[in-house]
């Protein structure tokens, strides 16, 4: 069992390397493999190919890896946390909260002239994290009151609906060019990040993953319920806070830099659990992080439509893969449910 688990992790790691290479070797400009390798190793620093690799493809691939890892881990933690296989940052309205704050930041600049001076990537990032955090703390406050998963999901969705309605009002009232900037943000992209932003994201995602790995004990025992977990020395209150905090940190910042990327956080934990059937988060967390990176790299590679100069929005591709996976998981659970009756 232990051997097959480490084998699976190894396979995931190999897949990641493979997809990373595939991802950076595809794009609208044809660059030969030898040139890519040469530029990666720093031999042909001045060529255009090298510039494209270092300034566009590598940052994009790195962003995919970081965002995928964070979203995968966040999705896993939320599904464990709510003991609900369909939970995820999207369902709980995190992305909607982020959208609302970003919409305020981008769209309100024409309405509030004094506001405009601060609009840049960073303002968008801060607004997005703030929005995601706000929604999460609303959901968490409700979680502590309700202790009932389905009502909590309803609250998350209602918060999302509320945020969306405000966003649509703002869209209706805003100028065309602001609207377009906002729309592009909502479609999700891994290609808009600079190396500086990648540094920040790396730090945040690693902090998030570090916190989540300290929560492994709590996450593992979460399925037993609060009473049992307490009886084996898990500090539920503290665990609740840190699980929420790390998810919020990772998902908020990823949404800030890449926009709301749908479905990765939802689908990856299910796919990984198929490969490694365990409840042990000590194994699952690194596995979903790898899995998330792989899925996002794959989606991004497809989004570039290899062989053409067209690029699809990232969210279109992730949902294209994510939605069928989700349907399949529901069908599978239903069958299991009926069998156990």
């Amino acid at each position: 069992m232990r051997k097959s688990t480490s084998n699976s992790l190894l396979i995931l790691g190999l897949f990641l390397v493979l997809l990373f290479l595939l991802n950076i070797s595809t794009g609208s400009v044809n660059i030969s493999i030898s040139e890519i390798i040469a530029s990666l190793l720093g031999y042909s620093k001045d060529s255009i190919g090298s510039q494209i690799v270092w300034d566009f493809r590598l940052p994009k691939a790195a962003t995919c890896i970081l965002a995928g890892a964070g979203l995968g881990a966040g999705g896993l933690m939320m599904q464990t946390f709510f003991r609900n296989p369909l939970a995820g940052p999207d369902v709980l309205g995190l992305s909607s909260g982020a959208s609302l704050m970003v919409a305020i930041t981008i769209l309100a600049q024409s309405a509030l002239p004094f506001w405009a001076s601060g609009i840049n990537q960073w303002a968008v990032a801060i607004a997005s994290s703030g929005g995601a955090s706000l929604v999460f703390f609303i959901v968490i406050a409700a979680a502590q009151k309700l202790k009932d998963n389905s009502s909590l999901l309803i609250i998350g969705m209602m918060v999302a609906a509320f945020a969306s309605s405000l966003v649509s009002v703002m869209q209706f009232l805003s100028k065309a060019e602001d609207l377009q900037a906002f729309m592009i943000w909502t479609l999700g992209s891994a290609g808009a990040t600079s190396w500086r932003e990648i540094q920040i994201m790396t730090v945040i995602v690693f902090i998030g993953l570090a916190i989540s790995s300290i929560c492994v004990k709590a996450l593992n025992s979460w399925f037993m319920g609060e009473q049992y977990s307490k009886s084996i020395g898990v500090n539920i209150k503290r665990a609740r806070f840190w699980i929420v905090f790390s998810t919020c940190l990772m998902v908020g910042s990823i949404t800030a830099f890449c926009g709301p990327i749908a479905f990765v956080g939802l689908a990856v934990p299910h796919l990984v659990k198929l490969l490694i059937p365990t409840n042990n988060h000590k194994i699952l967390l690194p596995a979903v992080s790898l899995g998330g990176s792989i899925l996002l790299l794959a989606c991004d590679t497809l989004a570039q439509l290899p062989g053409s100069t067209q690029i699809l929005p990232l969210n279109a591709v992730t949902s294209f893969i994510g939605a069928p996976v989700l349907i399949w998981v529901v069908l599978r659970n239903k069958r299991k449910f009926l069998n156990s009756r």
Binding site: S213, I214, V216, K217, N220, S221, F223, M224, G225, Q227, Y228, I232, G233, V234, K273, P277, T278, N279, N280, K282, K336
Partner: peptide
């Protein structure tokens, strides 16, 4: 009396949860 529902867990793993009070976060 709480009913325990969990998939992908062996009985041995369930029993080993008894050791959690004695384990560090690395389990």
């Amino acid at each position: 009396t709480e009913r325990i529902t969990v998939s992908n867990m062996t009985v041995y793993e369930l029993v080993s949860f008894g050791r959690y009070p004695y384990l560090f976060w690395d389990l």
